[in-house]
Design a protein around this nucleic acid. Sequence first.
DNA 1: CACAAATGGTTGCGCTCGCAACCTTATCGG
DNA 2: CCGATAAGGTTGCGAGCGCAACCATTTGTG
Lengths: 153, 153
Amino acid sequence: MTARPTLERTLELAAFVPFRLNRLAAGTSQYLAIVYQERFGLDIPQWRVMATVGSKQDCTAQYIAASTRMHKTRVSRAIAELEVRQLIERVSSAQDRRERQVRLSKSGRRMYTELLPLALARESSLLECLSPEQLAGFLTGLETLERFLQLED
Amino acid sequence: MTARPTLERTLELAAFVPFRLNRLAAGTSQYLAIVYQERFGLDIPQWRVMATVGSKQDCTAQYIAASTRMHKTRVSRAIAELEVRQLIERVSSAQDRRERQVRLSKSGRRMYTELLPLALARESSLLECLSPEQLAGFLTGLETLERFLQLED
DNA sequence: CACAAATGGTTGCGCTCGCAACCTTATCGG
DNA sequence: CCGATAAGGTTGCGAGCGCAACCATTTGTG
C-alpha cells in the first residue's frame, strides 16, 4: 500500500488527485452535455433545475438550491429563463406569499420525460467502461469521500 | 450487479454520478484551497502554473496549458499575474522568438518549496479517509474513467 | 400591537473565463 | 526569396457567476 512519505521535491500535477478529480468532473460534464445542451438547449443550471423539479413537483427555489448545492442567485436565474421558455410555471404560495411553488409546465414535462431516459442512459454508458467490481469499488470510495467532505444532503 | 434498466420516471440528482463527481471536485478544491489560497494568495490557475513550473523549469505557456488542460488565455493571465508578483520570470527563447521560457524566481522557488509539502500533505489527509482497499479501488476506477474519457496526457 | 430580526427571492456590480480576433515570428511551397 | 499559412502568445468582449444589497413578507419579542 506504500504509505509514501511526501519527500519528493516536485509534483506532477497529472498525479495529483484533486486535480484529477476536477479534470474528471469537467470531462464527465462535457460527456453529458450532448444530451441536455445540444439536444434541448439547456445549460447546466437549467438542467439541474429541470431534473429537480421533475422529481419533486411544487418545490421552492430554496429547495432546489439546497438539493443541487447551487447558489440561490444561480437557481433564480435558471428558473427565470426556464419560465420565459415556458418549461416551468410558478405560483405564489398561499400560506407564505414570499415563496413561489415551481412546477413543470405541460411542455416542460414533455421535455423531462424525453430527457430523463437519455441522461440516465448516458450515465450508464459512461459507467459501463468499468467492470462491475471496479464500479462497486469506485462508488464505495466516492461515498466515503462525500461523507468526509460532508457533501451529502 | 443489478444492470438496472432505466425505467424510473424521476431522477434523484443526488444519486446521479456526473452530478456527484462535480460536487466532489468542488468540495475537493475547496478542501485544498486553504493551502494555496488563504496561505499564499494564489487562485487555482496560478497554483497550477506554480506546480507545473516548479516541476519543469524553462517550459513554455503552451506546455503549461497542455499539461494542466487549461485554456491558453487562462494560462496567459495566470502567468502575467505571477510575473507581476515576481514569483516567476520569463525570458524570450533564442531559437524561437515567439515563445518565452517560464521559470520560478528566487522567491517563487521559496514559495514552491514551502507550498508543495503542504499541498501533498493536504492530499494525503483527504485520502486518509479511505481504507487502503478503498483507495486502491477508487484509484483504479478513476484511471479507467480517465482513459475512457481520454483525459490522460 | 409595533417594531426588530429573519427568510424567500431578485438584482446591481465586479470578477473570471472562453471565444474570436489579433500581433509577432517561423515555416512551408513555389 | 517571397508570399501564404501556421504557431506562440495576448487582448477585447460578452456571458455566467457569486457577493452584497435590496424588496417583500413573515416571525419573534417586548
